[in-house]
Design a protein around this nucleic acid. Structure first.
Lengths: 341, 341
DNA sequence: ACTTCAAATGCAAGCGCTTACATTTTTAAT
DNA sequence: ATTAAAAATGTAAGCGCTTGCATTTGAAGT
């Protein structure tokens, strides 16, 4: 739809500067290969015309875009934001540009976005979690676009990855909860389908429960989409049971924030009447009242390392083993001893 | 760096299907122009080869990308996230893809990102706020890339825009504060330089102050970068003055959340000892304790309308006047009457 | 069977850029 | 001065795709 009038091309610049297009191209891409005087002349022409190289043409000719794509489930909250920001910064200092798309947790949208980014010549991709259609991995391989998986880790993963063991992390937290005497534990989990992080976290809780003689099926699990509202609703429901739990473990901090709000609305004191835990340690966790006991994830570190690793792959480096990041349990106010029955 | 081996091209598909490249191209872009039987054959070849059109080549030949770029100051918090999500959804249903970049509030990065997106063939751009180097606007015009400005509104704006009047909105809120008897008002503003939203909000407070006989220079203004920590620090500083303010107005909800935390840390009750207000009404505002009095901005509406407007521009529609969205003051717990001296 | 015309397909010219290779200019050594 | 080597620049061949125009095919009408 753009008027073809006026957008200057390499040719225009070349003409204006009285050189060949090759020289202009070299001025832009490897300045050291053209002598000062000509370079100056060319640059002046570039400025005068307000020339910007046409990216499509450039990609086509050069096969390289210095663009990395990231596809995340959502931008609506800070879970990925922090890590992504670090990722972007690290890329930027290394001369790469980041393009982000989000999928609203819908696999078919993810596929679409992956294709869009690949088609746009992304040199590499950052993907969240490892659970997706194998055909997609085959596609990426075929297109020779390296993809790095973040926010997930398992020692036996097929693909380059950087993350942490969601299951073990949540288990660690659950151990803390159980150690404080909680036996009736409610769980508010994010939707498990197509979300390996959510399902692994849930498993982690079950692991701890089994280990301490609590039959996993005694856990009262509510699965709900992402959000503060949904977290609050789930909490309300949990606490209305005949035998309400003494502790509610949430799949992430956002759900936990909702749970906290619901507890307050119901006149329940946290942690006196009921304990609540989260996961991710986003800023929210320190702001809510009471402050939230949660699992701390080194988001920024993950983002930075992901950038370095991905650039390594893009530039032809070898595929290293999955990288596991250390998490830690942050004990804060929202977790207390179980209320004696 | 991709091995040239194997990535299938239009030609490969054409050969495999025994037709010309033109026919394959038509199959992909205007299927109705090719007869069923051939189309099937071609599609089979496409699938068999795992063919994806090369975007660069496509752009170059067709001049149209169905891609919209958005450049936002930060992804680290939900201020833009909510609106952006709506923006993306609206674009998606209309067949456009959204690519996002962030600038960390640095103008030179913004310029870079704008160029990157334009070069990548973005059909249109979403920009936040109107304050930027005029040369950039000229550049966009020259490249014939329509840009829509969001999160800002002023009746006399030169460019297509959708947003709200930050100054008037903040003034409205300030009136409420003053109406409750506050005369010593502290202000925690985001960095004003290069950020018209921040400076207009500040002006809004001054407007209200002047109107009620409070000399604007009596306002105690602290300017600080974005963040919860910085907000908390500013609050601490403010409350240590000899004559601490009875109300602290913050430039956005995130700063206000920090202020609230600092108040608690200092043993100050909100709003009994000091009132606090925010701006934006992000989810945070309802979660903090006490809940935050703030200005509600219709983020999702803004995102959706921005998408529609921008697509209109991209598809050659006329440039409408700036659109003003209605905001409202949300009175919640954090604002109370001034503590009598 | 023989036009006529529309529908389907093929041909080939770019789109704007990079880069191998060829050519010219400069530098330095004899 | 003369010449070889190095440095700077130019030439032109694609990169993979779309699309105007030419050609072929097929259906319909006589």
């Amino acid at each position: 739809m753009r008027p073809s009038r006026s957008i200057p091309t390499l040719d225009d610049v070349a003409k204006k500067a009285g050189v060949s297009t090759a020289t202009v191209s070299r001025c832009l891409n490897s300045p050291e290969r053209v002598v000062q005087t000509t370079r100056k002349r060319v640059m002046k022409a570039v400025d005068a015309l307000g020339y910007t190289p046409n990216f499509g043409a450039r990609v086509m000719a050069a096969k390289r875009t210095f663009t990395i794509g990231a596809i995340i489930p959502t931008m609506e909250n800070s879970i990925f934001a922090r890590g992504l920001q670090a990722f972007q910064e690290a890329l930027h200092t290394r001369g790469y540009t980041l393009l982000v798309s989000s999928t609203a947790y819908r696999p078919e949208v993810e596929e679409e976005q992956i294709r869009a980014l690949v088609a746009r010549g992304a040199d590499g991709l950052l993907l969240i979690g490892h659970e997706r259609d194998p055909a997609l991995y085959r596609y990426l391989e075929r297109q020779a676009v390296p993809a790095l998986i973040a926010w997930a880790y398992a020692p036996d993963m097929q693909h380059p990855a950087i993350g942490f063991d969601n299951r073990a992390a949540m288990r660690l937290l659950a151990e803390e909860v159980i150690a404080r005497g909680h036996r009736r534990i409610g769980v508010i989990s994010a939707t498990v389908k197509g979300n390996d992080r959510a399902s692994e976290r849930l498993e982690g809780i079950k692991d701890a429960a089994s280990a301490h003689g609590i039959p996993p099926e005694h856990l009262c699990v509510i699965e709900t989409p992402y959000g503060i509202e949904t977290g609050a609703d789930a909490m309300t429901q949990l606490m209305q049971e005949l035998q309400p739990p003494t502790a509610v473990m949430c799949g992430n901090d956002v759900l936990a924030a909702g749970a906290l709000r619901a507890a307050r609305a119901m006149g329940l004191a946290v942690p006196e009447d009921v304990s609540v835990t989260g996961f991710d340690d986003i800023e929210l966790a320190r702001i809510v009242t009471p402050t939230l006991t949660t699992v701390h994830v080194p988001h920024r570190e993950m983002g930075t390392k992901a950038a370095i690793a991905l650039i390594g792959l893009v530039e032809g480096g070898p595929v290293g083993p999955p990288v596991e990041l250390q998490i830690s349990v942050e004990l804060r106010e929202s977790l207390g001893p179980a209320k004696s029955a």
